[in-house]
């Protein structure tokens, strides 16, 4: 993917990331966040949650992965997320992105990012500034 190939409105390929508990446990262990609310549905419910939830940084990592798969070799200069509602472990979320502006001088594009749950509800929103050569 080159900067010249990109236009406002271009959609990044949507993905259905693997958020099964085994995968989340692997991530949480690596990130030093191996606590019940992320990897144990029962313990999460005891804390008042509807079930185990994805760590925020894992949601952000999933969105960063969408960008890198869309444009291998790009540089994410900035990424920012707003957690409006939790993503449940063992659910089937969808990650999406769309280009909202381009800056030819800086060779960067702005991308809107979202994670939706199975009901199509937007749970996480974000933006990124991505540099492409």
């Amino acid at each position: 993917m080159r900067f010249e190939d990109i236009e406002i409105g271009d959609e990044l390929p949507a993905e259905q990331p693997d958020v099964r508990v085994e995968r989340v446990r692997e991530f949480a262990k690596t990130a030093g966040m191996l606590t019940g609310r992320f990897v144990d549905h029962q313990k999460a419910r005891e804390q008042g949650l509807p079930g185990a939830i994805l760590p925020g940084i894992m949601s952000q990592a999933l969105l960063a992965a969408v960008i890198h798969r869309w444009a291998p070799g790009c540089a994410i200069q900035q990424i920012d997320t707003v957690f409006r509602a939790p993503i449940l472990v063992d659910s089937h979320p969808t990650t999406r992105g769309v280009v909202t502006s381009t800056d030819a001088g800086a060779q960067t594009v702005d991308v809107d990012l979202t994670i939706e749950n199975e009901a199509g509800e937007t749970r996480v929103i974000g933006t990124a500034v991505v540099r492409l050569d």
């Binding site: 406002i8 409105g9 920012d80 707003v82 409006r84 909202t100 502006s101 702005d110 809107d112 929103i125 974000g126 933006t127």
Partner: peptide, 17 residues
């Protein structure tokens, strides 16, 4: 606090789309 849109980019998006 939870908004991530610049007004100028809204305008460009409205026209481009």
């Amino acid at each position: 606090d939870d908004g991530r849109a610049r007004v100028e980019t809204y305008c460009g998006w409205i026209r481009k789309r």
